[in-house]
Amino acid sequence: MTTFTVDQTHSAIGFEVKHMMVSKVKGQFNNYTANVEAADLTDLTTASINFELEVASINTNNEDRDNHLKSADFFNTEEFGKISFTATNIEKDGDDYKVTGDLTIKDVTKSVTFDVEYGGKGTNPWGVEVYGFEAETKLNREDFGLTWNAALETGGVLVGKDIKIKVELELNPAA
């Protein structure tokens, strides 16, 4: 097994949610760690995958909103500072993969499946192998205890229930 590191300057873990039922708010987590080991990363079915995100690093480009997301109304970062994901099953799906695992947000763990696209393998100008992957899933935030909302005068709610998560990764063999 080879250990791979995430090149965080060329990777992102982001999300989007409906705002006021008419537009989307996008954000990302700036600080995270990953443990990816595989016999051959061109065949993701050989991999062991674990991620841990620092919730306080959430960034939606709005400090007031970010602070609200860190509060007890949402993530409660003082008590639940991390989000974790551990893959439990990886299946090949044509040229792509289905990566299922345990996602823990706050004190709730649920199984989620990411649709993963293998972007390919290359060698950077410094002779290091580079592997690219994109992963997406959708989940109901309320399933993880993220239930705060506000009713709108015109009907509907301020924050949508469905969260789209998009992960873009560039991985390199550990030195």
Rank of each mutant, 00 (worst) to 15 (best):
N30Q: 15
V112C: 07
T45K: 00
D40P: 10
D7H: 00
G156N: 01
G81I: 03
F133L: 09
N35E: 13
E91H: 07
F75W: 04
V112I: 15
A150W: 07
N67Q: 14
E16L: 13
D162S: 15
G132L: 00
E91V: 13
N30W: 09
Y97G: 08
E129N: 03
A34I: 10
L171K: 08
D95M: 12
D43A: 12
L152Q: 03
G127M: 01
V17K: 08
K164H: 11
S111K: 14
T46I: 09
E117V: 15
S23P: 07
A12R: 15
E117Q: 14
R65D: 06
N89Q: 15
D93I: 02
I83E: 10
D66R: 07
D73C: 03
F74H: 07
E37R: 13
T88P: 01
T45D: 00
S111F: 04
E54D: 15
N172G: 06
F74L: 12
N124A: 10
I105H: 11
P125I: 04
I163C: 05
I165S: 07
N140A: 15
Q28S: 06
T100M: 11
P125Q: 02
T42I: 00
V99P: 10
D102Q: 06
G81C: 03
N76K: 12
F29N: 09
A72T: 08
W148L: 08
T86P: 14
F80T: 10
V55K: 02
N149L: 08
K166N: 15
L139V: 15
F75A: 01
T77R: 01
G94Y: 10
Y118N: 11
L152S: 03
E54L: 13
G160S: 10
T77S: 09
V108C: 10
K166G: 14
V112T: 07
I83G: 03
K18P: 03
D115Y: 13
K166V: 15
V128L: 08
M20S: 14
F51R: 00
K70Q: 03
G156A: 06
F15H: 00
A174W: 06
T5Y: 07
N30L: 14
T46D: 05
D143P: 02
A56P: 07
Y118M: 02
G14V: 01
A150P: 01
K98P: 05
N124G: 02
I83D: 03
F144K: 06
F144Q: 03
F29P: 09
K92L: 11
N35I: 14
Q8M: 13
